[in-house]
């Protein structure tokens, strides 16, 4: 059982690494933000799996904190980032 749990944790880590490509490529700031949000979910899952697989129940608390605070970056971003997409300081469209 533990082998499977840790195997799944490893698989999810590989998923995160693959997802990094989206942060890398963008193309808009929103895509990058979205990808980081996705890592929050996957990171929570990895922590829950590690808590079981390493028999360290305290890791569930870390997962709880992850789940609570994953949205904070996105919320700060949408509430503070200028909406206008102008030619120069374009907020969401990036010129590659």
């Amino acid at each position: 059982m533990n082998v499977l749990i840790l195997g799944v944790a490893f698989f999810l880590l590989v998923n995160v690494v693959a997802g990094l490509v989206r942060v890398w490529r963008g193309p808009t700031a929103l895509d990058r933000m979205l990808a980081s949000q996705l890592f929050g979910t996957t990171g929570t899952a990895i922590l829950l799996l590690l808590a079981e697989g390493l028999s360290n129940p305290a890791l569930r608390d870390v997962a709880l904190v992850f789940a609570l605070l994953a949205p904070i970056a996105t919320v700060v971003f949408v509430r503070r980032w200028p909406l206008s997409s102008s030619a120069n300081g374009g907020s969401f469209h990036e010129h590659e």
Binding site: T28, L30, Q37, T41, T44, A67, P71, V75
Partner: peptide, 22 residues
């Protein structure tokens, strides 16, 4: 909690994208 958070973030991102004219 994760469902609540991702639902909200999804909404916010979609709204921001729409308002930015994507």
């Amino acid at each position: 909690l994760v469902m609540l958070a991702s639902t909200t973030c999804c909404h916010l991102v979609a709204q921001a994208a729409w308002q930015a004219g994507i």
